[in-house]
């Protein structure tokens, strides 16, 4: 997936447009309480997938920057965290709105809500750590180490812990699985393209941020 090629950006745009239109217009299963807001599945959930993919990209480049000592890898790592944080915040706020109207409270201390907030805190800590170090090479090395160190914990936080306790989210604890909503194959036809589309848009945002930062750096060194 070359950085300067356009096809995947266009693909992402088409998928997102398609999922937005289809997300509003397609028929959904009749569900109590959630009602029509089930359509949020196409908008709220892809935010989290994009965030997780972006954070994984960041860990990948952190590992690469530890081995290569190349400042470009370090910038890639931090910019994908920046893009991931945007998506994480969007995911939290859309989740809070959705929760307000279905669970009755914007913050209902649901495990997934809490742990997602903590995962974002983890990456804020990463950004704070970067600001605390002045020297460029040391900053790259130390923050890469923290990023890699924190990643397994984030995986435990987001994928393992919610399964151990009851949650209001589907698919956790005593709740019926995601498939209870998803049985409708038409919903799946919107949901999967939505996820792929938003992930591609996330990669595009990260891409733009990286290229901008790269330009700024080149300007500074001249």
């Amino acid at each position: 997936m070359s950085m300067y090629k356009n096809w995947w950006k266009v693909l992402g745009a088409i998928l997102v447009i398609y999922s937005t239109v289809a997300g509003f217009l397609m028929k959904t299963p009749e569900l109590p309480i959630i009602r029509e807001s089930i359509r949020n599945l196409y908008f709220h959930v892809p935010m989290w997938f994009s965030m997780i993919i972006l954070f994984s990209i960041s860990v990948f480049y952190s590992i690469k920057s530890l081995r290569s000592n190349d400042p470009a890898d370090d910038i890639k790592a931090v910019e994908s965290v920046n893009a991931g944080v945007i998506f994480g915040l969007l995911g939290i706020v859309t989740g809070a709105i959705w929760a307000k109207f279905t669970w009755g409270q914007a913050w209902s201390f649901d495990v997934k809500q809490n742990f997602a907030a903590i995962a974002i805190l983890l990456y804020f800590a990463y950004l704070v750590l970067r600001n605390a170090i002045d020297e460029e090479q040391r900053r790259a090395k130390i923050s890469a180490i923290y990023n890699i160190f924190a990643f397994p914990i984030m995986v435990v936080l987001l994928f393992v812990l919610p399964r151990l306790s009851d949650s209001l989210h589907p698919g956790n604890g005593g709740n019926p699985g995601f498939n209870a909503y998803d049985l409708d194959s038409r919903m799946r036809m919107v949901f999967y393209p939505a996820c792929l589309g938003w992930i591609l848009i996330g990669c595009w945002i990260y891409n733009l941020l990286y290229r901008l930062r790269d330009l700024e750096r080149n300007k500074l060194s001249k």
């Binding site: 995962a119 983890l122 800590a125 704070v128 750590l129 924190a150 812990l161």
Partner: peptide, 16 residues
Amino acid sequence: LMAILSFPIIIPVLVV
């Protein structure tokens, strides 16, 4: 920095 860096990491352990 120690506090900022360690709290998000230790929370999952603390919960368990």
